[in-house]
């Protein structure tokens, strides 16, 4: 196992009577891409701010790269790149000047700073607009400038808070591609979002947040098993006699739905595509297609929060 990069123990933040983060225990290892998923107000941003030492926890502790964000925030912040939700820049300065200010705040020597700024702008595709005032930038460009700012620190950990919020689908897709490159460089990434399919596309592990608690945690498959009760759904398209009865007799089947005359959805405890095909052929139907539906985070999320509100 890789070394632990981010660790929290019973981390708690209360604002008066409101509990924003409730006894959070989180462990993220080097090189992982971890997604924090949850509706607005579930404590995602507060958790991130506590990891950076920008907000004081009421109780519990956190360690980032072995440093205590409360006592050694400068150590943490010089190693961690943070992109806040709705990142803002000084509109009257150029992209280059904005990054130069950050570089100086990080104490980078001038030649190093210049080289890193140029590299970062180049990599984010902003080299052509380096001398344009940020006031003229689009939302997507600002977001990329935010990433350029992170890159110039050469961080070990990158924390992104709702990075794709307000981006058009194309820009969001590009952004996810950027996050994948971090993974290739073995940078640990903590990503918060409420856009499930995006988290699913890039994250190794996901933590589902609700009311300040991390209610479920694991890979997408593990989450599916926990929340959806280990269901696999098999889609079968076949013409011929009604297969509902026959499919229901299979030992691992939970339920069978006939969605239309030739489409069936079989919920099962395991991947039973083989059995389904055999049964269909035995009964005398023509199998047109057979597929396994991968559990989607959307479904997990929906199912989980349905359960919570129902309870």
């Amino acid at each position: 196992m890789n070394e632990i990069v981010i660790e929290t123990h019973n981390l708690t933040k209360r604002y008066g009577d409101i509990v924003a983060v409730d006894n959070l225990n989180l462990t993220i290892r080097a090189g992982e891409v971890f997604g924090i998923l949850g509706p607005n107000g579930s404590g995602k941003t507060t958790t991130i701010l506590m990891l950076l030492g920008l907000t004081e926890p009421t109780d519990g502790w956190a360690r980032v790269l072995g440093f205590d964000p409360m006592r050694q925030p400068l150590e943490v912040k010089s190693r961690v790149g943070y992109l806040p939700d709705q990142v803002g820049f000084y509109d009257e300065l150029t992209a280059w000047e904005n990054l130069a200010y950050t570089a100086k705040l990080n104490g980078l020597a001038r030649p190093v700073a210049q080289r890193r700024i140029n590299e970062a702008l180049e990599r984010m595709g902003l080299a052509d607009v380096a001398d344009r005032r940020v006031g003229t930038f689009s939302r997507g460009m600002r977001q990329r400038l935010g990433v350029a700012e992170i890159l110039l620190k050469h961080p070990q950990v990158i924390i992104l808070d709702e990075p794709t919020l307000g981006l058009d689908p194309e820009a969001a897709r590009e952004f996810l591609q950027i996050i994948r490159t971090f993974k290739e460089e073995k940078i640990t990434v903590l990503l918060s979002s409420h856009l499930l399919h995006q988290v699913q596309a890039v994250c190794d592990r996901v933590g589902l947040f609700s009311h300040g608690k991390m209610v479920v945690e694991g890979t997408v498959m593990e989450l599916a098993r926990q929340v959806l009760g280990g269901a696999y759904s098999v889609h079968l398209r076949a013409v011929g006699p009604d297969l509902t009865q026959a499919l229901q007799k299979l030992p691992k089947t939970i339920s069978v739905q006939r969605l239309n005359s030739d489409l069936y959805k079989v919920e099962a405890q395991e991947d039973i595509r083989g059995e389904v095909a055999r049964v269909a052929v035995q009964v005398g139907a023509h199998v047109l297609s057979l597929g396994l539906e991968e559990p989607s985070l959307d479904e997990i999320y929906q199912r989980y929060f349905q359960g919570v509100t129902a309870a």
Partner: peptide, 14 residues
Amino acid sequence: NRRTLSRVLAQPIY
């Protein structure tokens, strides 16, 4: 209001 505060404070300064 320009949303630069959290970005600046995320740099290694107090």
